[in-house]
Amino acid sequence: EPLWIRPDAPSRCTWQLGRPASESPHHHTAPAKSPKILPDILKKIGDTPMVRINKIGKKFGLKCELLAKCEFFNAGGSVKDRISLRMIEDAERDGTLKPGDTIIEPTSGNTGIGLALAAAVRGYRCIIVMPEKMSSEKVDVLRALGAEIVRTPTNARFDSPESHVGVAWRLKNEIPNSHILDQYRNASNPLAHYDTTADEILQQCDGKLDMLVASVGTGGTITGIARKLKEKCPGCRIIGVDPEGSILAEPEELNQTEQTTYEVEGIGYDFIPTVLDRTVVDKWFKSNDEEAFTFARMLIAQEGLLCGGSAGSTVAVAVKAAQELQEGQRCVVILPDSVRNYMTKFLSDRWMLQKGFLKEEDLTEKKPWWWHLRVQELGLSAPLTVLPTITCGHTIEILREKGFDQAPVVDEAGVILGMVTLGNMLSSLLAGKVQPSDQVGKVIYKQFKQIRLTDTLGRLSHILEMDHFALVVHEQIQYHSTGKSSQRQMVFGVVTAIDLLNFVAAQERDQK
């Protein structure tokens, strides 16, 4: 057995438009009618409502009807409940999964919650491996369901041993009777949507819809739904939504950006999952974080739909894509998950301010006199920076000697690579993860907040409520011999709460 199987392995699926269902090699399930009293909570997966979006479509000038398939009504709160249950049931049916076995899954959280929910009911041990950027709410729900959680670096490539995929496979090879159901490759993922989600949409719309818009992560949702719609409703256009920084969209030119990270969760990847059939997507749109969270908040405030950030991405694209539809036509959007997962993220004004998705003037509360002053007023001194090749031991000596707790790590040209902190280095040394002679590049981390000289002290204040420091950066445009230009970030300084307090105190003292 291989040590790991690539999540982007070539698909062996034989589905073709027009091929009889009787030739399918898979076990198919028909939607079942729910009894009045459910035998367990797993029976509350599927049969989610279709809700008309009344205000947002009109606000953006849509002539067509805009409908939302509300997947956050599933038992675990997301569309991923469907595939989690289906993968477990299919693994039980073919004898792969037996009582007492362990389920391991690399996930952005929602599939993990679905699997942990099913594992709690069915009696399996469950280990979820997820990147650090995923919300604390997801972690809390997983723990409450009895799952064990392993976190991995957000910026690790999918084929790196440190990625959530790599760590999951390492655990599988170490733990007896453990299984990775593997949402990236498992046919049960798109089949769950082909058999149930798509049929529900067709039934709820009486077979009449002209466009379907869905955000894409593993691709199982859009693949399964689109294949069924292509068979039953061939005139329906399928629109895929991919965040900026991901590479799922086609044509490839759409993916060209210097951005590699994004805040919206559960969609987009740096590889093409095996289950994603991009041939059934008629057109791709890219979405960005700001519009995703703005539209998610709009869905909550104006439509009462308590959905997550990827739902915002989907609707932001839908109001663009559906401009081509006329009166009497219908566009369906998939709202994948609930706001429950993001209470401390985009639902929080403070978080939105820190990330730059909300401006101070958007909030009406009274601010102190210094709130709208610029960061450049602080008069920061030149920063202490270190090269990635310097040793951890030497870096600790320098920081202690100069009285700093942290320093930016830059390359020879001064471009920011990340940050090192005294606390992080000492804990890594004590844990045996690094040696004093190791290069400081081994303990770089990139989960820090950046701020510009033109940003306000109010925004800085919000950042420092949650973080010990902020890195002050400025952009530099560099022209190359080819005539092309590129933008790079340079370090201007490091600012802490002490710097802000000293500035405010000094100004008030001078005024007296």
Rank of each mutant, 00 (worst) to 15 (best):
L380I: 08
A321N: 01
P368I: 15
K367R: 12
T385A: 13
C331G: 08
Q507W: 13
E360H: 03
L500D: 01
K446Y: 14
K345V: 05
M466S: 11
H372L: 13
D282R: 14
Q326T: 12
P251F: 01
G423D: 01
H480L: 08
R459L: 09
R459I: 15
Q478S: 13
T456H: 09
I416N: 07
E258M: 09
A506L: 05
L453C: 11
T389H: 13
G493T: 14
A413E: 14
N424A: 14
E252H: 01
Q406M: 01
D411H: 07
P383A: 07
T385L: 10
Q376C: 15
F503T: 13
E365L: 08
I396F: 09
D242I: 01
Q447C: 13
T274F: 01
S246V: 01
L358R: 09
R340S: 01
L373S: 09
E397M: 10
G483A: 15
A407I: 14
Q450V: 07
R330L: 01
T395F: 05
E412M: 07
G458V: 09
G403C: 12
L399M: 15
K355R: 12
H468P: 14
D510I: 05
T364R: 09
A413P: 09
A497G: 09
L417K: 01
I463H: 15
S461F: 12
V494T: 07
T274G: 06
T391H: 13
I416V: 12
G414N: 01
Q376N: 09
A316H: 13
Q256I: 10
Q447Y: 08
P243R: 01
D362S: 01
L471D: 01
I390G: 12
I498D: 14
Q476F: 11
Q329S: 03
D277I: 01
V410K: 06
I477K: 01
E263H: 11
I390A: 06
I334L: 07
G423M: 01
D349Y: 07
A413V: 12
Q435I: 12
T482R: 13
Y269R: 01
D289I: 01
I300C: 07
V333C: 10
Q326N: 10
E365Y: 08
Y262T: 09
T344E: 06
V440I: 12
T294A: 15
S313C: 09
V281L: 15
V264C: 10
A505F: 12
E265G: 01
Y479T: 15
I334Y: 03
V495A: 14
Q435C: 14
S310V: 03
L353C: 12
S437K: 15
K366F: 07
L387T: 14
S246P: 15
E465N: 15
P383M: 13
I416H: 09
E324T: 11
L373E: 13
K442D: 13
V332G: 05
T391I: 08
L373Q: 01
L471W: 15
R330M: 15
G493C: 14
S485W: 13
I463V: 12
K446D: 07
P383D: 03
M466R: 09
D362R: 15
N341L: 01
I444T: 08
G441N: 13
S428F: 10
M466G: 14
K512A: 14
L500G: 06
Y269F: 01
S437R: 11
Y342S: 04
P336A: 06
E303R: 05
A322T: 05
F492G: 11
G423I: 01
Q435P: 09
H462F: 12
G418A: 09
V281C: 15
M490G: 13
R488T: 08
R297N: 01
Y479M: 14
T482D: 06
N255D: 03
E377M: 15
A497R: 15
C392W: 12
F492E: 10
A470S: 13
K366A: 12
L335H: 01
N424W: 15
H474Y: 12
E365D: 13
K366Q: 15
V241P: 05
P368T: 04
G393S: 11
A311C: 06
N341Y: 04
K366Y: 15
L426F: 12
M352Y: 05
L500E: 04
V472I: 01
E475T: 01
I463S: 08
K320N: 13
T364Y: 13
F271N: 01
I398E: 12
S310T: 12
L426V: 09
L399H: 01
P336F: 03
A296V: 06
L417N: 09
G268S: 04
R452Y: 13
E253H: 01
P336D: 15
E475C: 13
